[in-house]
Write a protein that binds this DNA or RNA. Structure first.
Lengths: 133, 133
DNA sequence: GAAGTAGTACGGCGATCGTCAAACTACACT
DNA sequence: AGTGTAGTTTGACGATCGCCGTACTACTTC
């Protein structure tokens, strides 16, 4: 139940889109992504929720739009896990840190995996009542 | 923690093929299987190994044929995790405990998930085994 | 520069995880 | 009966996990 304010208005901030700057974020190379780490990352409800939202929106999202029912530091932790295991890509844009699914890498490495996991999550949500939070 | 102290021998044992008898094992019903638990179970290398072997052999296997590089009690633990999260079905046959993948249940609940996970594991093994300079 | 916003780092806490060894139970076969 | 095989249970251990609050840094805007 994230407050869908749709902060991504491409045309409004098109001329001066903040670029990656300052801090650098470590990402595993595609070849370094390990299946067991991905599965572990996805086995947490919070992180699954993040990944599903990322998939649905299909664009870069800042951490703050997720509004997870945990503290800021815990949110940071979950995003870090997702990034370090190769599930998401993160980049600083001004004061925001944008996250995006590493679909290409994941699909190349593990064909069909992400799709079936996301489909399974959606199916299960439907089965179990479809409402959480 | 049930204190099962009833070694009931209901009827005569079949002399040739040992059947399920004595101890009973708890399995989650199909509807009770949770995606996050399955992903968590699969995120452990030992358990993934078990599941992959079960898939390859495609038949009931006793725990002892796996020969995992861990102790007996740890092996028991891993099989228990796999059973309790609904990934495998186990049954006692004489002195052996046979395990089998719950393919039907998993495929019904999470279509394509197991296939893509197993394919991903195989792919990754190929990657890491062949390009490990 | 100061204030505000977005996210990080640093501990700390309790729970869970993977692991083990030792003692035990259940079954099969002499 | 006794011995052997197969797996369980218990209790422990260190590591990791998910979570928190506090203090901090980086960037934007005033």
């Amino acid at each position: 139940m994230q407050t869908q304010t749709t902060p991504t208005a491409p045309q409004s901030r098109a001329p001066s889109q903040p670029q990656a700057s300052g801090r650098s974020l470590e990402h595993p190379r595609r070849e370094a992504i390990r299946l067991e780490d991905v599965l572990h990352a996805l086995s947490d409800p919070m992180r699954m929720r993040v990944v599903r939202t990322l998939e649905e929106e299909n664009c870069e999202l800042s951490c703050s739009v997720f509004d997870l029912p945990v503290s800021k530091s815990t949110t940071t932790h979950h995003f870090r896990v997702l990034r370090e295991c190769g599930v998401i890509h993160q980049i600083y844009r001004g004061t925001a840190k944008m996250s995006a699914l590493r679909r290409d890498d994941l699909d190349a490495l593990f064909p069909g995996l992400l799709d079936s996991v996301l489909a399974a999550a959606a199916l299960e949500e439907g089965r179990l009542g479809g409402d959480r939070g």
